[in-house]
């Protein structure tokens, strides 16, 4: 699968769970790998690129780390909005 396409799938996966369930990095890798048939490692690599670019972000709450779609505020602060 083309990397951009995979990133879009990851983003769609994140949107599906937004506000419903906090997703750990591993949940995203497992979930997207199951949906798309690519390996978890490939998902992880794409996910990391998205985080580096600010398309996704790490967050912390409820005693655990998770991955989220960034807020406007976050993007503005990182100079990405």
């Amino acid at each position: 699968m083309d990397k951009e396409e995979l990133k879009n799938k990851i983003y769609a996966f994140m949107e599906k769970y937004k506000g419903k369930k906090k997703l750990k990095e591993k949940d995203v890798c497992k979930g997207v790998a199951e949906e798309t048939g690519v390996t978890q490692d490939e998902v992880k690599k794409a996910l990391r690129e998205m985080i580096d670019a600010g398309r996704l972000m790490y967050s912390y709450g409820g005693g655990a780390s998770s991955v989220e779609i960034p807020s406007e505020e976050y993007l503005k602060e990182k100079g990405l909005a």
Binding site: E25, R48, I51, Y58, S59, Y60, G62, S65, Y74
Partner: peptide
């Protein structure tokens, strides 16, 4: 209060 922001761009801690 705590939570939310966790790092710099690319890091989660």
């Amino acid at each position: 209060k705590h939570g939310g922001i966790v790092g710099v761009l690319g890091y989660g801690g």
